[in-house]
Design a protein around this nucleic acid. Structure first.
Lengths: 351, 351
DNA sequence: TTGTAGGCGTTATCAA
DNA sequence: TTGATAACGCCTACAA
């Protein structure tokens, strides 16, 4: 019997080098039962030291790696979560995704990535796939910071919405505090001694554009000031709009001493036009952007002071909230996360 | 017996609304055996029409979704692949990742996303996790277009390297044809009637920088031309370097009529300096960039002609090659994928 | 056409 | 300390 056994064993090891070794293989080589092998590898106490050693060696020899599918089947949890994003190419999804992947990575959970590309059908498709893979939870990342339809309450797993909040108040949503971010920007400009502050922003249909505008106006009001130029300049999230709006602004209100731009792209356009108009930045006019898009903000002339939405932190928090919801009872409501000002030279003297 | 059964059943359905329904639940409700239910749901022929109907209804009623973990365990394949990237924040990983996700999404395979952040230890960690989850294959996406260490041949699953090739010729690597891309750029400038063409590029330690430079020089040589300025201007992948190098270039070779920039960021700097120097683009000097980074290329003045690496296509191809390797025998070697020129106004007259 | 039995790889329970 | 046995949820011969 022993000879046959070892013969079989050797044959298996050699011929099936490609196929993954199973616990049975390990047990056979170590000369113990499957259950003992399991205990040994899982560090249970009730197993002899010598036995454990033999099992370990066998496992190493076979490069044994336990089948997580089988483990999940028993454990009733897969150790995976789904990341359902609607727009991968969007710059905003990526940092969130990184933060989430980051938070999960330090645990043992793996992340299923799904890009629905803004298509509801594809989203349903991916959702079904994720649920059938028995993910333990779901993070839904929106591309646009506006309310999006809820996936519903009866999915069987907790869901956290990030960046784009769900339209159902029973869901938990983590969003950027755009209002507070704008306050930060204005606050900073006031601190720099600016009083004639204009606001050029993007597409007015974005909730974020409205929130930021309100934050700016309200903060100014608290300082007994009004928006220079008499209005918010809504337009598009582009450099071109930043350039055009700045030209118009200089015409209407040549005495401005600061511009708060709704995005870094807009801010680049603003800087460009100011430069061509011979307006010195930051001495004559200070500029603050929004997004802290590093490639743009650090390479502008001068480097751009801007508001960072801490999106990576948002992703991490989303992961933490999801963990909490997997373990205990889920929270709900919309949780705004603070922005952060990154000061560069477009608002401060280069000393 | 029947009464007890249905009693149990109802209790289960109501109390366990949260837990996922299993095939057993479906079978019980439909009043058939588990195997019959399985056959019915999987569209096997040998099941009565009426029975199938009952099973379907029961499944719907319970929102039954087969447990993919159990299925995978039997099928010996999980229908998942791992996407091992070393740098999520890098702009180059994302399109590749999108392309891959895209190609897999249309199939039934789901993608595990792992970001090793350039850390070999974390990479090993993720690799182990992926293998234990029994992924059917692996795509390794590099952040930098340079050779990277192979994961080895004995992983038990096929691997495709994208963007950054493996150092083992037995692996299959899909890379951008930087050399050919540079040829395209020079070709285009020659077609535009340019003959005094300079090349400003980035970090010379990048293989891509070298490849592009060789492509440019070789293409010029075929037209009996040499690089204007007498050399390649290597430096950094930044706007600032583009600005500085252009200043220096204008000093050394004021008669240039075209600049091929090694990246769009560099090109932005080039355009900036040309503008300030009063050099008209494209009439006096034409400019071609590299990367087709839309946010930069479409918003520059004038919009930037540039080389697109077709990274999303590269991702899709990687997915296809992986599929092929999962099904049949794996290919090996380095497969370069062509670039594409995107013509905008920095090289062509605005008509 | 339907149901029974066995197994995928692992863990947990309980006897030995 | 060890090992048989029964799950986990599903599928697929094979038997009825």
């Amino acid at each position: 019997m022993p000879t046959i056994d070892s013969g079989e064993m050797t044959a298996r090891v050699i011929s099936d080098a490609s196929r993954n070794a199973t616990l049975r293989d390990v047990a056979r080589i170590a000369g113990v039962s499957v259950s003992t092998a399991s205990k040994a590898l899982n560090g249970r106490k009730d197993v002899g030291e010598a036995t454990r050693e033999r099992v370990m060696q066998a496992a190493n020899q076979l490069a044994f790696s336990p089948n997580a599918l089988a483990q999940s089947l028993i454990a009733q949890r897969s150790g995976t979560v789904g990341l359902l994003t609607s727009d991968l190419e969007g710059r905003f999804s990526i940092p969130i995704l990184m933060g989430a992947e980051d938070a999960f990575g330090s645990d043992m959970t793996s992340v299923f990535l799904c890009d629905a590309r803004g298509d509801a059908i594809r989203e349903q498709h991916h959702l079904r796939a994720l649920l059938s893979r028995r993910v333990d939870g779901l993070i839904v990342v929106g591309a646009r910071p506006d309310v999006r339809p809820s996936l519903g309450q009866d999915l069987g797993v907790p869901v956290v919405y990030a960046y784009a909040p769900s339209d159902d108040p029973d869901d938990l949503s983590l969003v950027t505090d755009h209002y507070g971010g704008a306050e930060l920007a204005i606050d900073h400009l006031l601190t720099c001694g600016r009083t004639r502050i204009a606001h050029i922003s993007g597409d007015a249909t974005y909730g974020a554009a409205q929130d930021r505008a309100r934050g700016a106006v309200d903060r100014l009001k608290r300082a007994d000031l009004e928006l220079a130029g008499g209005q918010v300049f809504f337009g598009a999230w582009s450099e071109a709009w930043g350039r055009n709006a700045t030209r118009e602004l200089l015409r209407r209100a040549p005495d401005i001493d600061a511009i708060f731009a709704g995005s870094d792209q807009i801010a680049r356009g603003v800087l460009d036009t100011l430069d061509r108009a011979g307006v010195a930045v930051p001495s004559q006019v200070s500029v603050v952007g929004f997004d802290n898009w590093e490639a743009l903000a650090t390479n502008s002339r001068p480097p751009l002071t801007t508001i960072d939405m801490n999106l990576q932190q948002l992703g991490r928090t989303a992961a933490q909230r999801l963990f909490a919801a997997i373990a205990g009872p889920p929270k709900s409501g919309v949780e705004p996360l603070p922005c952060r000002l990154v000061a560069r030279e477009s608002s401060l003297p280069a000393d």
